[in-house]
Design a protein around this nucleic acid. Structure first.
Lengths: 203, 203
DNA sequence: GTCTATAAACAGATAGAC
DNA sequence: GTCTATCTGTTTATAGAC
C-alpha cells in the first residue's frame, strides 16, 4: 500500500488484517471482512481482486510487524547483554500490542511454508552475521562458545511462546487476564537473566 | 473409540487425525479425509455423523497424545532435577514423532479456547500441587523461590516452540532437515541445564 | 466507487440402491 | 456397511445498474 491509496482501501485492509489474524486464512470469510469494514462484499474484489491477493497483502504486513528491526539491534556495537534485553523488550512490546499475530504467523507458515521465501527478504538476518557476532564475543571472553541455533531458539521461544500458549498457560496456572499481563511484564527481566546466565563464561 | 469398533471406523479416524492435524479444522475437507482413508465420503457421516463430531474425537485424541503423564512424573518423589529431565525428554519424544501436533493444538485452542474446558479434565495437573512441590523444594534448600508460572512457561516454551517455529528457525539459521533433528537431540541436554541453572539457589 | 443481484463452484450432509 | 447420486446451504467472484 502506498500513501496515495484511498481511504476505503485502507479501511478494507485494516478490517482484513483483523479478521485474518483472528481466524486465519481458511477460517476468514470475505463477508465478515466486508461487515467489519462497513462496506459491501463486492468492494473487496474491486480493490483486491481475490481473497488470496488480499491475504497476501495482509500477511506481508503482519510479517513485517512481527519481525521488526532485529538486524538494527544486532549489528550495533552495544554490549551483548544489552542487545538481548533490547530484543526481548521490543518483542514483548509488539506481542503485547498484537497478541494474535504470533499464532497467526506460525499457523500460516505451517500451512504454507513457501510463504516464508516470499517474505524473508524483508527481514533477512544473515546467519553468518550472527555467528560472526558470537565469535567476536567469544574471543573477547564476554561469553562462552554457544551454538547460535540454541541461543536464538531459547530467546524466541521464551519470549513468543507464552502468547501462543496463553489459554493453556492461564488454565494450567490459574492466572486471569490481569495476572497474565503482569506475568508478561515480569518476563522482561526474567528472560534476559536466564539467557545471559546461559551464555556467561563458566566461572 | 472402544476396542470393539470396526476396522473401517479406525481407518477413518486415523485418516481424519492425519488430515485435521495437517490442515486444521477449517482447512480440512471431508472429501480429503475420505480419500486418505480410501473410502467414500458418505461413510464418514455414517460413522461420525458430522465434521464437527469427527473433529471433536480427533481433538480429544491428539490432546491426550500431547499432554502425557505430566502428573505421573511430577508427583513422584524423584529429585527435581530428574523430574525436569524426564519431562523435557518425554516431550521431545512425543514431538519428534508427531511434529504437527503442537501447531495443531495451539491453533485450534486459539480458534476456540472453550475446547480446553472439555479436555483439560483428562490431564488436570492442579496448580496447587505444583506450587506445593516447589514450596517443598525451596524449604529443602534445593532450589530458590521461583514463580511457578515462569518455570512452567520456560520449560514448555523451550521444549515445544522449536517445533512450531521450525520453518522460521531453519530458514533463519540455515539448518536442513537432518541438522534440525540433530538440533532437537542437543536440546535434551541443553534445556534441562538452563532450567536447572535458573532455579538453583544463588551461590 | 459503491451498490444489488446473481453466477459458479464448493462442501457438508442425506436418500436410497445394493 | 458401502456405494452413487443428489440436495442444501455456503462462499468466492462477477455483471451490471447507479
Amino acid at each position: 500500500m502506498t500513501e496515495l491509496d484511498s481511504n476505503t482501501e485502507k479501511l478494507i485492509f485494516r478490517a482484513a488484517r483483523k479478521i485474518f489474524t483472528m481466524k486465519g486464512y481458511d477460517g476468514a470469510r470475505m463477508q465478515e471482512i466486508a461487515d467489519e469494514a462497513g462496506i459491501n462484499k463486492a468492494l473487496l474484489h474491486y480493490y483486491f481482486r481475490s481473497k488470496d491477493k488480499l491475504f497476501e497483502g495482509v500477511f506481508r504486513d503482519v510479517f513485517r510487524t512481527f519481525f521488526p528491526g532485529i538486524k538494527s539491534i544486532l549489528v550495533t556495537d552495544r554490549p551483548i547483554d544489552e542487545k538481548i534485553k533490547l530484543l526481548v523488550n521490543q518483542y514483548l512490546d509488539i506481542l503485547s500490542g498484537n497478541p494474535d499475530v504470533a499464532g497467526f504467523i506460525f499457523h500460516e507458515l505451517r500451512m504454507n511454508p513457501q510463504r516464508l521465501a516470499g517474505n524473508i527478504r524483508d527481514i533477512v538476518i544473515d546467519a553468518r552475521e550472527i555467528r560472526q557476532m558470537i565469535q567476536t564475543e567469544v574471543e573477547k571472553g564476554a561469553i562462552r562458545p554457544v551454538r547460535m541455533e540454541h541461543l536464538i531458539a531459547n530467546l524466541i521461544s521464551m519470549t513468543v511462546f507464552p502468547f501462543i500458549s496463553k489459554p493453556v498457560l492461564m488454565s494450567l496456572t490459574g492466572m486471569d487476564e490481569p495476572q497474565f499481563a503482569q506475568f508478561i511484564e515480569e518476563r522482561r527481566k526474567i528472560i534476559p537473566e536466564i539467557i545471559i546466565q546461559s551464555i556467561k563464561p563458566t566461572a
